[in-house]
């Protein structure tokens, strides 16, 4: 749930990277930290890892200040993907405004993807959130690997869901990371605009919202 402080004209937003263990959530965030050049960008906090696997969460704060004076903050979180950290996952997921589900494209990982997606639906429900109305982007990562399921199959499989089209990425190489993030911003904007009149009261339209929050140093591939 976004948090708006009228006295400070400050809007706090939260986006969570969710997905199975080792699918590349942390990698996504590290790449965003490198690639993004939004108006404001804080330090990337990689909280605690064991063998490179997230134990608590990672967090990257970014922000923009509109000409109308709205101070908008967006905190990007990753959850730990390993099954046993479910209560941490749930705590981090709580009050999220949007979710990027990072799936692993490798054929061998499809069961893990499904389990993690069920777990997302489950935890959203426990937190009183509705997966159908939550801005959600599904990213299939690790496109560079040889046994990645081919794109046509994946897109066809997801075509009937509210989350089509899928976003494809190779986070290790910085590919598709910013695009996935932009796709989420585009799905997030209408929800926020309805609630906070971003365009009407704060002079932020959809295009400015996406552009300013996801300005990149250089497009990795045009």
């Amino acid at each position: 749930m976004a948090e708006y402080l009228d006295s400070e004209r400050k809007l706090n937003l939260k986006v969570v990277y969710y997905g199975p263990a080792l699918s590349g959530k942390t990698t996504n965030l590290m790449q965003l930290h490198t690639l993004l050049n939004p108006q404001r960008k804080g330090e990337l906090m990689v909280l605690e890892t064991r063998d490179d696997r997230t134990l608590f969460f990672d967090m990257l704060p970014i922000g923009l200040r509109s000409q109308e004076g709205l101070d908008l903050r967006l905190k990007l979180y990753t959850v730990p993907g390993q099954v046993q950290h479910d209560s941490t996952r749930k705590a981090v997921l709580s009050r999220a405004d949007g979710v990027i589900f990072v799936a692993d494209s490798q054929l061998s990982q499809q069961d893990n993807n499904a389990t993690a997606f069920d777990n997302l639906a489950d935890n959203l429900q426990k937190l009183g959130m509705d997966i159908e109305s939550l801005p959600l982007v599904v990213q299939f990562n690790k496109r560079d690997l040889p046994d990645a399921i081919d794109e046509a199959t994946l897109q066809a499989r997801w075509a009937q869901t509210p989350w089509s089209p899928l976003s494809l990425a190779s986070a290790l190489n910085g590919e598709g990371v910013v695009e996935s993030f932009r796709q989420l911003l585009r799905r997030l904007y209408p929800v926020l605009d309805r609630e906070y009149q971003l365009a009407g009261r704060h002079g932020i339209d959809a295009e400015a919202f996406v552009r300013q929050l996801s300005a990149a140093h250089e497009a990795p591939h045009a």
Binding site: M45, L47, E48, L55, F56, F57, M59, T88, V92
Partner: peptide
């Protein structure tokens, strides 16, 4: 970092 982890 420590605080966040502890609070979480």
């Amino acid at each position: 970092k420590y605080r966040l982890a502890a609070n979480l």
